[in-house]
């Protein structure tokens, strides 16, 4: 999922101007997701620093953060139905994960594997693991230390997009890089 960057920046300015604005307000402006709520917090601080340095248009997510990974790097790769093969686009994205991990050597990631709803629950757990692993293997082949990327599978339990349609399915067959809390 990509956030609308200008909107986030605008939200940051609203919040910078109104310091008593609640986190809930930030959530609703920037899209209502859990990741978005932490993102709005980080944009508030970066917006206020850029304000003093008078370069508001270069404001963005805190470098090396989850939101940085989502917006500036691209946190996910997609797969064909019942497949775990990486496309050339996916390889490019994972290449950026590798660069990002080189840039932020303290960061570690969890690669989540997901499936669309048109498979049995247990098979989809295995398929999600296979997808997460395909992304991880390629990442490691690019020189990333294996200890910095773990995998987890959610099968069909955590779709990115609701709906029983091809567009949702295509977005849900994915591997997503998430900043590790460890």
């Amino acid at each position: 999922m990509r956030l609308n960057l200008p909107l986030v920046v605008a939200a940051a300015f609203v919040l910078a101007a109104c310091t008593t604005a609640s986190e809930d307000a930030a959530k609703s402006v920037s899209g209502g997701e859990k990741v978005a709520s932490s993102s709005s917090k980080t944009t508030v601080s970066s917006a206020s620093t850029t304000k003093s340095s008078e370069k508001p248009l270069s404001a963005g997510p805190k470098p090396g953060s989850q939101l940085d990974l989502e917006i500036n790097v691209g946190d996910r790769v997609l797969f064909d139905y019942d497949k775990s093969t990486l496309s050339s686009d996916s390889r490019t994205t994972i290449g950026r994960w590798a660069e990002w991990l080189m840039t932020y050597p303290a960061n570690k990631i969890i690669i989540e594997g997901h499936a669309d709803e048109r498979g049995t629950r247990e098979y989809n757990l295995a398929l999600g693991e296979r997808r997460a692993n395909a992304a991880r293997e390629y990442l490691i082949s690019l020189g990333v230390n294996p200890n910095r990327a773990k995998t987890i599978s959610f099968g069909k339990e955590r779709p990115a997009i609701p709906g029983s349609n091809e567009n949702a399915y295509a977005q849900n067959r994915r591997a997503v890089a998430v900043l590790s809390k460890d």
Binding site: S84, E122, L125, A126, E129, R130, N133, A134, E137, S153
Partner: peptide, 9 residues
């Protein structure tokens, strides 16, 4: 049960 590791279950 099943165990999945490194893409193999």
């Amino acid at each position: 049960m099943s165990m999945a590791e490194r893409g193999n279950t």
